[in-house]
Amino acid sequence: MTDSETATAASAPTRATTMRAAVVDRFGGPEHVRVDRVPKPEPAADEVLVRVRAATVSVADHRLRARDIPRGLSLLVAPTIGLFRPRVHVLGMDVAGVVESVGSAVTRFAPGDEVIAMLGSRMGGHAEYVAVPQGGDIPRKPATLSFEEAAAIVFGGHTAMRYLARVELRPGAEVLVNGASGAVGIAAVQLAARRGARVTAVTSARNAALVRANGASRVVDHEREDFAAGASGAYDVIVECAGTAPFPRVRHLIRPGGALLQVIADLGDMLAAPWRSRRSGILVTSTGDRVGPDGMQRLAELAEAGDIRPVIDRVVELDGIVDAHRYVDTGRKRGSVVVRLG
């Protein structure tokens, strides 16, 4: 056996039991992300092993990597994300891919099925493989979308569905989405418009055409105009995706019986929400409904029908994930930044 054949034979078992992944061992900037080989997961009896084809770098990845936590929540989230060092070393909250193998108790999926999945706080999407419970948020991939497009609808669509499920939007309802050009904001604009709402999108002027193309009836350029200076009782629902619209600032804008859906909120706003709801007659909440498998299936169906559409800012390969983190850190991404694997 030649030296090269010996080296190949020696490396084969390692590569069969390991995979490439983006790893984070320290809190901090994008430079703390590195691509390395880590153990390949083995699916439990009720899990499917997904060969990841695409994932996204989201604001959730930024927050967990940089430990950029809303005020007051640092100690509360420490058991999940870590206090001094990350508890989760492979980020990535969403994936699109192909089922590689299934556990002995799995009945819903078979090898070769194309799927999307919302991984939640388990993370793990920035890797070549991830194990997902068959009862988790994992439907089949919309056949009309590529893997990159399918990954782009998951984080934003899942989050927007969670919060909009808290309200009943009738045709003609007035909805304001603050932070309308990010992954969640774009999905909220699409879903609200689909229900017949008139959507006002708060974003920068460079994103005006984008949000209008996705269903916004009106655009407020936050760099030139203070949307909170608007007329009293202008909106039935405000979807807060930017962290700049706390209840005291926007209370006058919301009609009686309306809602403030706080996708981003600090501890003070979260604790005050029930009291503010009782006092004002306005639903103030930082908690969305659970989506679950049925909701994820609904998301896939909406995508199949074209009612929720992927918006992709850029696509990078796994080796370019550090630059993807740097870009997400700017807060200027439009829709999703997609990482392609395999």
Rank of each mutant, 00 (worst) to 15 (best):
Thr8Trp: 15
Ala9Gly: 09
Ser11Thr: 11
Arg15Cys: 10
Arg15Pro: 02
Thr17Gly: 12
Met19Leu: 09
Arg20Asp: 11
Ala22Arg: 02
Val23Gly: 00
Gly28Tyr: 13
Gly28Leu: 12
Pro30Cys: 05
Val35Arg: 04
Arg37Trp: 10
Val38Met: 04
Lys40Glu: 03
Glu42His: 12
Ala45Thr: 10
Glu47Phe: 02
Val50Cys: 00
Arg51Ile: 03
Val52Asp: 00
Ala60Asn: 13
Pro70Phe: 07
Ser74Val: 13
Ser74Cys: 10
Leu75Gln: 13
Pro79Trp: 12
Pro79Met: 10
Ile81Ala: 11
Leu83Phe: 15
Arg85Asp: 00
Arg85Ser: 08
Val88Cys: 10
His89Arg: 15
Leu91Glu: 05
Gly92Tyr: 03
Met93His: 14
Val95Gln: 00
Ser101Gly: 01
Val102Ala: 14
Ser104Tyr: 08
Gly112Arg: 11
Ile116Cys: 05
Ala117Thr: 03
Ala117Arg: 06
His126Ile: 02
Glu128Gln: 15
Glu128Arg: 02
Ala131Lys: 03
Gln134Pro: 09
Gly135Met: 11
Gly135Gln: 15
Gly135Leu: 14
Pro139Phe: 05
Ala143Gly: 13
Thr144Pro: 02
Ser146Trp: 02
Ala150Pro: 02
Ala151Thr: 08
Phe155His: 12
Glu168Ile: 06
Pro171Lys: 03
Glu174Ser: 12
Val175Ser: 01
Val177Ser: 01
Gly179Gln: 07
Ser181Trp: 07
Gly182Tyr: 01
Ile186Thr: 15
Arg195Asp: 09
Gly196Glu: 08
Gly196Arg: 07
Ala201Pro: 01
Ser204Asp: 07
Ala209Val: 08
Leu210Gln: 04
Leu210Phe: 08
Val211Ala: 05
Val211Arg: 04
Arg212Tyr: 04
Ala213Cys: 08
Asn214Arg: 14
Val220Ala: 04
Arg224Leu: 13
Gly230Arg: 03
Val237Tyr: 06
Val239Gly: 01
Thr244Asn: 15
Phe247Ala: 06
Pro256Gly: 07
Pro256Ala: 06
Leu267Thr: 02
Leu271Ile: 13
Trp275Cys: 10
Ser277Val: 12
Arg278Tyr: 10
Gly281Met: 07
Leu283Gly: 02
Thr287Tyr: 12
Asp289Tyr: 08
Asp289Ile: 00
Gly292Thr: 05
Gly292Ile: 06
Ala300Asn: 04
Glu304Arg: 09
Gly306Lys: 09
Pro310Thr: 13
Pro310Trp: 09
Ile312His: 00
Ile312Tyr: 02
Asp313Asn: 07
Val315Tyr: 05
Val315Lys: 07
Gly320Cys: 11
Val322Asp: 03
Asp323Cys: 08
Ala324Asn: 07
Arg326Gln: 11
Gly331Asp: 07
Arg332Ser: 13
Ser336His: 01
Ser336Glu: 08
Val339Leu: 10
Val339Cys: 02
Arg340Lys: 14
Leu341Pro: 05
